[in-house]
Amino acid sequence: MLTIALPKGRVLRAVAPLLARAGADAQVLLADDRSLVREMPQAGLRFLLLKPDDVPTYVDYGAADLGVCGRDVLLERPTDLYQPLDLGIGRCRMIVAGVVGRAAPVGVPRVATKYPRCAADYFARRGVQAEIVHVQGSVELAPLVGLSDLIVDLVETGATLAQNGLEEREEVARISSVLVANRAAYKLRQDRVGPFIEALRPPRPPESPGDPGARAGAGA
């Protein structure tokens, strides 16, 4: 039995068809009930539905063998887990945004974000002193009502930014969902984990023809 931690919500809908390729029942995964554990005994799979930020914690402690989580979660709270596969879903960008037409303030800008560590690191790397304000949601509101000058947040299309009269200023990071693996599970259960990962692997992108040996000779 493999236990896989999944984030509830948007990414779950995107990852369900991928997991179906590895033998999971997408209908059971997406069933609109409140159960937090979705078992598929025939396939030898068990899924835990968690808050996105909790996925690496479950995998780190070995409560789950594998997990799916966004790079934003891993950037904000780094872990020691293996990240053997980028799933190519949940793509978005972490950006700095401000109010359209309003120049950045002189001195120390105030930045509202759900990602205080990423934001602090980003501004520190650029030699900008910033006051980071940690908020849990509705980040776009902060600059509109004077809580902050800027925000650091995720954008997919930019529609929410535009709706709120905000514009992108800089890109902090590119985000996508990755598969994370517990180290012991990866080493001890390679016979189960290896094929599962391979089944999730997206078809190889055409833009890397120069590495014929890249995936040759997967170990015994």
Binding site: Y82, P84, D86, Q190, G213, A214, A216, G217, G219, A220
Partner: peptide, 25 residues
């Protein structure tokens, strides 16, 4: 160390990520 192949641009280095298992690897 994270086995994160997306961050490894070199094909030889990336090939290492698949080389695990028994003596065959």
């Amino acid at each position: 160390a994270r086995k994160d192949e997306t961050e490894v641009d070199d094909p030889t280095l990336r090939a290492l990520l698949a080389l695990h298992g028994g003596r065959d690897a």
